[in-house]
């Protein structure tokens, strides 16, 4: 049996029984430069994390600060002139709540539609014997790399009469090909024996999908729901493009208009901000409230997203 030299930086080096081995002399030198690197590495990671978190902390600090301190450029990490009146101001705007409710409705409806379509598509495509399967997969995958583009889409949605309706928001992005491939990969590994047994017991394809496959795929279903829900919650452009009545906006468009008003530039069209300077703390509070559900769900989101991405890295 070959003795393997200790991995540098592990405790084995300090073991007196191994201390005098000839290979250790080189290793100790190696380990010194490596441990210097590890210290540097640890510090670098802490700095990266701090920089990543800073914009969030800044938003929170501004939310609780008074406008005077913000305009004087004195707010960074700690709130100055602590108050919660900005929250009261934003939350007393009925349009904010209306748009917030719209976001919830759009997210729920769009996610439901997307899940139905994606599940049906993925399940059918996961059956390797299905004739025409690779053609259908190709049809879906091609849209990842080539799409109609903004103008033809806009013309189409207008021609279908979807302008100022919920359908312009929930239908055009109902199938994400990435999610489809993740789900297909999952279904492909689903126990064939179980499905065959169900078939023998008299279940049809629909029955197998509805009563066997879906109940046993809760983890991947949850992952997909989160993928879709986050993307629909965060979306703004479809709504910005196809909705021009304020009471239909999702909260992201509400926020965009605040920001556009604040930059003092209204070139972007639409019902952009009224040209008035919107105070930074109002913007911050709106941002905070808009993203609050995501932050609250973050521990789950992260876990499921990472898992989903791993599944998705299965080669299409």
């Amino acid at each position: 049996m070959v003795t393997i030299p200790a991995e540098p930086g592990t405790t084995i080096e300090k073991d007196p029984r191994l201390g005098s081995r000839p290979t250790q002399t080189i290793k100790i030198k190696d380990s010194r430069s490596y441990s210097a690197f590890r210290v540097f590495n640890g510090i670098a990671i802490i700095v990266i994390c701090a920089v990543t978190l800073y914009p969030f902390l800044n938003i929170i600090a501004q939310s609780f600060s008074s406008e005077g301190y913000i305009n004087a450029g004195q707010v960074n990490l700690i709130p100055r002139g602590f108050n919660v009146t900005t929250f009261e101001v934003v939350m007393s705007d009925s349009m904010f709540w209306r748009n917030y409710a719209n976001t919830v409705i759009y997210t729920v409806v769009a996610t439901a539609i997307a899940m139905v379509l994606t599940t049906c598509f993925a399940y059918a495509l996961s059956k390797r014997h299905l004739k025409g399967r690779s053609f259908f997969i190709g049809l879906a995958v091609f849209t990842m790399f080539f799409n109609g583009g903004l103008i033809p889409n806009y013309v189409l949605i207008n021609a279908m009469g979807f302008t100022n309706t919920i359908w312009a928001i929930v239908l055009p992005n109902a199938i994400s090909v990435f999610n489809l491939l993740v789900m297909k990969a999952f279904f492909e590994n689903f126990s064939q024996e179980l499905e065959e047994a169900a078939e023998i017991d008299g279940l049809t394809t629909y029955g197998i999908l509805w009563r066997i496959v879906i109940p046993l795929s809760k983890a991947v279903m949850a992952t997909m729901i989160l993928f879709y829900a986050v993307s629909f919650w965060n979306a703004w452009f479809q709504a910005f493009l196809y909705l021009d009545r304020r009471e239909l906006y999702p909260v992201t468009v509400y926020l965009r208009n605040l920001l556009a008003g604040a930059t003092g530039t209204e070139q972007m069209g639409g019902a952009a901000g009224e040209g008035t300077q919107i105070a930074s703390n109002v913007q911050s509070v709106t941002m905070l409230l808009t993203t609050l559900p995501i932050i609250c769900l973050y521990p789950f989101l992260q876990k499921y997203f990472v898992r989903g991405i791993m599944l998705g890295s299965v080669k299409a």
Partner: peptide, 27 residues
């Protein structure tokens, strides 16, 4: 043998056709 599987494909394919391939043709 697989007509039920093909029925599952109808809506998704309709989606692809209308919202992905029709705009491509719209170019």
């Amino acid at each position: 043998t697989d007509w039920r599987l093909y029925t599952l494909l109808i809506l998704p394919l309709l989606f692809l056709l209308v919202f992905r391939y029709l705009p491509m043709a719209g170019n």
